[in-house]
Amino acid sequence: MSFKLYSRNGRLLKHNSGQIQLNETLFIIIFIILIIVFGLVFFSQAENDSIRTKQKEYRQLDSIVTTQYVTSLTELKCSVYGTEDQSCFEEIKLTAFENLTKNDWDLVGEYYVNKLGTAKITIEEIYPQSRNWTIYNYTGTFEKDGVAYDGKQTQIPVVIWNPLTGKRAFGVLYLTVYNKVI
């Protein structure tokens, strides 16, 4: 036995109430599901952005730590009777360190890779002469894992002091820290 719908003037309606309500319910359910899906997608996207931002901030802080570490390397800094000079590197120490890096990377790498990670450090004399020292260059794992890296270069002016002549040259420390691109 089926019910039939009638309008006010007694005309038979085409659909019965059950069908109308079923359609309505279906439409509402689909709409609510759409809203929930949209919300979930948005929330996951926002969370993803938040993680990326945090990651970028931490990478920047890491770069700061590396920069501070490099500028305060006792192995390279000028010192007179044990007193270190700010923003000053000794020319002889730079040459010695560069030679060590070139000739005995295993020894240098064993210690400094843990401290500096993937990076390149070059010191360039700008005035009066023009020359440079590459004291650290580690990009060892780049090819192995196939992950993209980006490098941000930082320039820090430094005095290059020659303890034999006593002259102080104007130099720049170029530090490029490479980070994984995620």
Binding site: C88, P128, T154, Q155, P157, G166, A169, F170, G171
Partner: peptide
Amino acid sequence: ELGMSYATVFTKTS
């Protein structure tokens, strides 16, 4: 850091 180091290094250069 760049501004600070530049000023210091500039005045110390021979």
